[in-house]
Amino acid sequence: MKKLLDNIEEYIVASSLFIMTSIAFANVLSRKLFQASWSFTEEITANLFILASMLGAAIAAKRGSHLGLSILTDLFPKKYQKFVTLISTVAAVVFCIVLIKEGFVLAMQEKATGQLTPALGWPEWIFGTFVPVGGIFIMIRFIQFGIKAFKEEGVK
């Protein structure tokens, strides 16, 4: 169970990429063989791309792979570098809180107005929740990375 929770983003991203690839390939075959395109494939693919991007950012946060300017942290002695990492982690968490809040507001507006997706006619707020949910994953992973980095003697 711990392995599932530690890697849940990877599993969801892999599943999303598999679904996106499969339906895009099926749509190409449909166009070539039957001269008929499935309009819903673009809708699903675009929304799953948003989900995969958000969770990909969470994976990068977990691994400490987000772009950063090490030129600033490299100016400090090793023992102070972890405080710079702490400050950047706090800034990332604040950004995530704004992302979660604004994403939630947008999804609730979509629900309140009854917006539907053009091709499938599904409630738009379902896909709108990908942003705040992704923001929650990113925030959790930034916090985990920040705690881990702060406990280490020196930060890489």
Rank of each mutant, 00 (worst) to 15 (best):
Ile97Thr: 14
Lys111Met: 14
Ala46Lys: 14
Phe142Cys: 03
Ala14Gly: 13
Ile126Asn: 05
Glu42Met: 11
Leu106Met: 11
Ser22Tyr: 14
Gly121Thr: 10
Gln81Thr: 11
Lys148Leu: 05
Thr129Ile: 12
Phe40Ser: 12
Ser53Trp: 12
Ile138Tyr: 02
Gly154Pro: 05
Leu51Arg: 01
Leu69Asp: 15
Leu4Ile: 15
Ile100Gln: 02
Ala26Val: 04
Leu120Cys: 07
Ser15Glu: 03
Leu55Val: 10
Pro77Val: 05
Ile44Ser: 03
Leu86Tyr: 11
Phe142Ser: 00
Gln115Thr: 12
Tyr11Glu: 02
Thr113Ile: 10
Lys79Leu: 05
Leu33His: 07
Lys111Asp: 09
Asn7Gln: 08
Lys82Asn: 09
Ala14Ser: 14
Ile8Pro: 00
Ala52Trp: 01
Phe83Gln: 02
Leu48Ala: 03
Met54Ala: 09
Met20Pro: 00
Ile136Thr: 11
Trp122Cys: 01
Leu116Lys: 07
Thr89Trp: 05
Met108Glu: 12
Ala26Asp: 03
Ile100Arg: 02
Gly135Ser: 07
Ala107Glu: 04
Val90Gly: 01
Lys62Arg: 15
Met20Ala: 05
Glu110Val: 00
Phe142Thr: 01
Lys32Val: 10
Trp125Val: 04
Cys96Val: 02
Ala36Asn: 14
Lys3Tyr: 14
Glu43Asp: 05
Ile97Gly: 07
Gly68Val: 13
Ala61Leu: 10
Leu86Ile: 08
Cys96Arg: 00
Val133Ile: 15
Phe142Leu: 01
Leu29Ile: 13
Ala57Phe: 13
Ile136Trp: 08
Ser22Lys: 08
Leu75Gly: 10
Ile143Gln: 04
Glu153Trp: 04
Val84Trp: 05
Gly56Asn: 10
Gly68Arg: 15
Phe95Gln: 01
Gln81Arg: 15
Tyr80Asp: 09
Glu9Met: 06
Ser15Trp: 07
Phe18Trp: 04
Asn47His: 15
Lys79Cys: 06
Asn27Gln: 12
Lys111Leu: 13
Thr45Lys: 12
Gln81Glu: 08
Pro118Ile: 03
Ser16Met: 08
Val94Phe: 14
Phe25His: 06
Leu67Ser: 14
Gln35His: 15
Met54Thr: 02
Thr85Cys: 10
Thr85Met: 10
Ile147Asp: 06
Phe137Pro: 00
Leu51Tyr: 03
Asn27Met: 09
Gln144Thr: 12
Glu102Gly: 01
Lys79Asn: 11
Gly56Lys: 07
Leu48Trp: 04
Pro123Cys: 09
Met139Val: 03
Leu116Ile: 12
Ile126Glu: 08
Phe104Trp: 15
Glu10Leu: 10
Glu9Arg: 04
Glu124Asp: 10
Val155Tyr: 10
Glu110Met: 14
Gln109Phe: 08
Gly103Cys: 03
Ile59Glu: 12
Glu102Met: 11
Val131Met: 12
Ser37Thr: 12
Ala149Phe: 03
Phe95Val: 12
Phe83Lys: 02
Trp122Ile: 13
Ser37Glu: 05
Trp125Leu: 04
Val94Lys: 10
Leu55Glu: 06
Ala58His: 02
Glu102Phe: 14
Ile50Phe: 05
Ser70Trp: 10
Phe130Gly: 01
Pro118Ser: 11
Thr85Asn: 14
Lys62Asn: 13
Gln144Asn: 14
Arg141Cys: 00
Leu106Val: 06
Lys82His: 07
Ala91Gln: 02
Ser30Thr: 12
Ser53Lys: 08
Asp6Met: 09
Leu51Ile: 04
Leu72Cys: 08
Pro118Gln: 09
Phe137Cys: 00
Lys148Arg: 15
Leu29Phe: 11
Ile19Glu: 01
Lys148Cys: 04
Lys32Pro: 02
